[in-house]
Amino acid sequence: MFAEQILNGLTLGSTYALIALGYTMVYGILELINFAHSEIYMTGAFIGLIMVTVYKMPFPLALIIAMAGSCLLGVTIEKVAYKPLRKSTRIAPLISAIGVSIFLQNAALILAGPQVRAFPVNFKSASIKLGQSIQMSSLQLLILLISIILMVGLHFLIHRTKLGQAMRATAQDKEAAQLMGIKIDRVISFTFAIGSALGGAAGVLVGVYFNSVDPMMGFFPGLKGFVAAVLGGIGNIPGAMLGGLILGIVEVLGAVYMSRYKDAIAFAVLIIILLVKPTGLLGRKLQEKV
């Protein structure tokens, strides 16, 4: 029973981790909380749903198209709503980000209506036995597998490619990176593209997992993804993964005792981490340049 709960937590947590990556990557480079990220996640779920139900696509293809669509949305948002504000006060891009989030959420409400839709994907709902008493559904396994593949892919991208190197350099010191000939605008676009693609994938996976998609679905997962990022150490990519998994497990275990306030658990985690270790589990101490 306990082991199964852990497994549920890991499944949920892997989707939080995917969301957290988008927040943490953007924060690492722009020091901006991209509030629209939760709506990118929601849009990803809708695109996936449309591909599967309207265009009858197989699930893997739908997932890829959802990721591509989210990616495009993320890059567009950056160009339209954040880029013009790069030189303004700290609060301006934050307000703009909230504006984008509100806009997308309510545009989706008008276009799709407030009702919750099912996400019908035909999986053989077989369950796999792990050991004596632990069962895992094939769906859970699929979600975990896809999340792991995406995260390994991201790790490879960041540590083995030139683009990844440019991203890391930019996150450390934007000006120095620029002096080294790195095109900052491109790095920022790529960061949004990758983060958004992962967010969109998370949207599809969660939509399938809970068999539900709706315009407001991004709110809490978005919040939790951010908490996961802070938990792991904002700006830190392995931290986001770790934070997501831990948060997923904590939430599933916590929900056993206080199901009504399930969503409050992440919030409590945020407050505790801010009080006890604001730099997060793996975070470096953030130093302001003076």
Partner: peptide, 30 residues
């Protein structure tokens, strides 16, 4: 609500000081 969303983005980009103007609080990052 859609309008509020657009309003927040548009004001930040084109008129961060709001309609009362004058106060250029939002102009520069120090």
């Amino acid at each position: 609500m859609v309008f509020y969303g657009i309003l927040l983005v548009a004001m930040m980009i084109w008129r961060p000081q709001g309609i009362m103007g004058e106060n250029k609080v939002m102009k520069r990052r120090g």
